[in-house]
Design a protein around this nucleic acid. Structure first.
Lengths: 176, 176
DNA sequence: CGAGTTCTTGACCTATGGGTCCAGAAAGGT
DNA sequence: ACCTTTCTGGACCCATAGGTCAAGAACTCG
């Protein structure tokens, strides 16, 4: 997962995987069948560890906007602190493989669906709590927030400093 | 440009380029030096043709929010109508090459800067026209809009239909 | 403990990636 | 018309991608 995340699918070679795993090439292929199959497992592992972490952050206690701001800041900070600037593996996979690999695209789609759903729930909660105008379409705001996260994590890959990301986060939360 | 845009950098082979250009391999390398150098030229061409088109759309006449909505809709529609679902080449490049290719990352960064600037100008215009609350930080809203476009164009790569993109666009324009 | 099963490994294989080179075709100068 | 220069295509090159395999090591289990 780490290697695919850092280098992307096409740029990762069997040798890279062998080196990172510290096993022989035969074991690698005996255990996983193919590079493609291993990638899929890696993406699933990413989903189960990383992607779910965001959703759990959103379910904590406290004012909705605080939670949201905190979660976005956390993403931006960790992305920027990563020396390899890997961003989000799901986002990277969407960009790299969505035309050619339907299964990978589908995995990413589902991850996005889940995240969008979590945002929607959060928005509805914010509306009940009076933090967010009840006139807004929670579903649409959920999509907006998912979209913002996707944008943020891609921008984090090329951002020179935290400024633009901070502006995006502040503006996104303020505008709700 | 078309080939790199469709397949990404790593997945594009010299053979692909030779086939698409209809020239011999020798001519290819004689003319462009290396795959990498040709990619950079392709990315520059993309910037000069596609990326500038968005900025020009934003400079048309009429109410600011209408222009914005129209431009976003246009992006979403063309992205979805593309049978290859290539999305935005700059976004794809950021996702694929930002850790490993500083020059490419820099090109993308500059494209993003320009687009963000255009959005900022648009927001300021909207504020003068009374369409957008003058209390908002135009710079931050510009960043937010750039971020939304980046997100949209990545989402367009895996979107099943226009629904989610439409929600994002509507919500984005409405919250301003 | 010993036989059978599973794992591991690095040598090996083929096709292709990315690139060079040269012989000849076109183009250009005079 | 001739020579020079540039352009072109494709044969050729080496390293690597992606994967297989057989032989031995390690683990099971009665």
């Amino acid at each position: 997962m780490e290697v695919f995340w850092r280098k992307g699918y096409a740029a990762t070679t069997p040798q890279d995987l062998v080196d990172a795993l510290g096993i022989g090439k035969g074991s690698l292929y005996n255990a996983f069948g193919s590079k493609r199959a291993l990638f899929e497992k890696a993406l699933c592992r990413y989903r189960d560890s990383q992607a779910l972490a965001l959703i759990e952050m959103l379910e904590e206690k406290g004012p909705v906007k605080d939670r949201l701001r905190k979660a976005l800041r956390f993403l931006a900070e960790t992305d920027l602190a990563d020396p390899d600037r890997r961003g989000c593996m799901a986002v990277n996979t969407a960009a790299e493989l969505a035309g050619t690999d339907e299964a990978a695209a589908d995995l990413v789609r589902r991850m996005f669906d889940r995240t969008e759903g979590a945002f929607r729930v959060l928005v509805e909660e914010g509306q009940r709590a009076g933090e967010i105008a009840p006139g807004r379409d929670a579903h649409a705001i959920g999509s907006l927030l998912l979209n913002a996260v996707v944008g943020l994590r891609l921008m984090a890959r090329i951002a020179e400093g935290p400024d633009r990301l901070s502006r995006v986060i502040d503006a996104t939360v303020d505008v709700l």
